[in-house]
Design a protein around this nucleic acid. Sequence first.
DNA 1: CGTACTAGTCTTTTT
DNA 2: GACTAGTACG
Length: 838
Amino acid sequence: MITRKAPTALAAVKKRTGETKTMSIYDTLNERQKEAVLQTEGPVLILAGAGSGKTRVLTHRIAWLIDRCGVDPWNIMAITFTNKAAGEMRARVDQIVGFGSEKIWVSTFHSSCVRILRRYIDRLGYDTNFTIYDTDDQKTVMKDVCKRLQIDVKMLKERTILNAISSAKNECMTPEEFARAEDGDFTGKRIAEAYAEYQRTLRRNNALDFDDLLLKTVELFKTCPEVLDSYQERLRYIMVDEYQDTNTVQFELIRLLAAKYRNLCVVGDDDQSIYKFRGANIRNILDFEKVYPEAKVVRLEQNYRSTQNVLDAANEIIRNNVGRKEKRLWTDKGAGSLIHFRQFDTAYDEAEFIAQDIGQKERRGALEYGDCAVLFRTNAQARLLEERFVTEGIPYDVVGGVNFYARKEIRDLLSYLKTVDNGSDDVAVRRIINIPRRGIGATTIARVQEYANERQISFYDALREADQIASLGRSAAKLGSFVMLIQSLRAKVEHYGIAGLLRDIIETTGYVRELEDSDEDDAESRIENIDELMNKVVSYEESHEEASLSGFLQEVALVADIDNVSQEGGRVLLMTLHSAKGLEFSDVYLSGMEDGLFPGYLTITSDDPAEMEEERRLAYVGITRAKKELTLTCARARMVRGETQYNMVSRFLREIPESLLDHKLPDRKVWEWESGETLSFGSSYGDGVFVTGGRRREGSASMSDSWGHEGGAAVAGGRKPSSDGFYTASAPEDGIGQTRPSVDTRPRPKAVWAPRRTAEENKPFLTKASAGLSGLSKGAPAGGRPDYEEGDRVRHIKYGEGTVTKIEEGARDYQVTVDFDSAGTKIMYAAFAKLRRV
DNA sequence: CGTACTAGTCTTTTT
DNA sequence: GACTAGTACG
């Protein structure tokens, strides 16, 4: 049981005095960290602020347990959220523990559960070779369920139902419990029915979704005490990373595992809890001491990552949150640079600045691409930045967006692999049965499905009996050849391995050939993705002694995008704030720091103050990624969902003391555009947002004449077009000024003023847009070419008259160069210059 | 059965 | 604006 290992953890260190003395790795820890490492028995809560060396503490703690306490590595478990974190943990543990480290159970929640379920799930009536459904598969299943239950997906969307089911599962609720809790409410009842039917379908397909992996493990532990006991005996020392992100099922799982020995050490930072939407329950960390009254609590507040200025900014922001454990990060590194702040007219300017700034610094040697990241709130913001990075020739990688394994071509090929591996995955079989086109249509598929349902067999098994299905007629032959194809692939797997199988599939289906012949412009990148998949197969086969198709598919099912990110690529990383958690960079750019974007509308208008706190934590996470330089940027105008939004500076920026910033924040009541225009807001209305443009809906003739005349009544939120053609808000209930797509909006831009509802100020808002505003209508970004040409005489409100010498079409807007009679030559954006032809 | 066009939705964040 | 699902038509 006890394996004492050689003292690899001890390092000989040369002291300053010159004498050589044996000193342990533990001496490099600070007092607090040491405390956390040495407290090996009983429950421990480590409140680890950002950059306070928590991974170091965890790995050293593991080493200590093995080295000094004689704990068998076999009895230790370290659990994380992402494969990447698990991999890093594993590597660092290997480094300091040496012999025996491979026996430590280091893995994610999800893969831990898969590992347990592969062994024991038959006790719950599932087959141990179950398949794992991802979000896409879930939707396919739910679509079917809705059809069967005759749920109108227009009233109740699949996604909504799935979200409700996911929340229920995260709270450990069975369909029966869910149904009981939802008595009365019609929608709730329907969701409950859908939940039950969905679960039945999954079971029939021998499939589990992500949430089930956790839930079924808990269920297994509760119904089979002997199984639980065997794991309790094995996993005597449990460590959980990112504990603030655990949800109720995860909490329960850990609670069960640790119930016998109670050696549970959780590490987390309540200020970095940003996954509430995924069911994370911040109470798990806040109430840890209530659940484990004997818990030892250690606070790690010394930060080894950032400069004091960065930390001060983060501290000042986060202290506006109420529901948190008081902490204050500090460093002995010194103040460092001021935090950079810039505001731009448009999101294009912002992106351009970031790309150029990074390029310049790199050329100057002030920055390395590989140690630099640009962060944003929503994935959609990446595109603009990408464009700029391409033009500036800066190497970059975008993290996230569409997961590699969620791409169509990858899913198609994986479905083939799944079908060959195991025909019971109906979703996979049905996905590929007509890829490439085999003339098998919806009717045929429905008939086969019907046959399968009647006989309680899988879709694939029904296909094999196609000639028995009378209703099929001639189509049966097509199905027969599909089955033949799969069978022959199956027969060959043994011989040529997974890579060979994939190659064969690509060959016989002509998948790549079809792409090569297609004139779609993303065909090339799809082929690249397929090559990438092939690489992954090959490297899987190389790194696994007993590579199997099932093993590969299982591994692939639990991969997240962040898992594949390398910081060693020498490329700038573009990603969401969520993806950035756990990473650090010397230079960090936080873009889109605007009210309405970050924090987003939904948060601003929410009645639940907890949402704003979560958003603030996200800001905190973003800022604390920076080691040295932090640049915060925002734009006055940006396109969001095809509409131009005019946003004020993010309230989070205003929570940073001005003394920490290199540029003053703009006055929140006046906007000054580069053209010299100013736009002032009513005195005490706080920050707000303008939205212009809106979708052109040509079909709705009933509205087309009403705009600017009597049409106001049809506009949502009680807005009316004012005399100068702009919608101004007359106290919309929700405080949002965004034009709704359901409302007819004429092509010409209009602006809507929607103030933030402040605690102190909730009176009617301004009713008349200021004069300067009207100019915005002339060539708002969404609009077309300005109504003047090169050579035309124009008048600018500030610079007077001049001649247009150049009009350049930019990505979205027109850049106009004007020779002014008295003010000289100016280059400006058509959208904001508000030039009038004279 | 397949294609081409239209309408609607989306954008918060993801294991 | 972009993507997707749904529909009309060949």
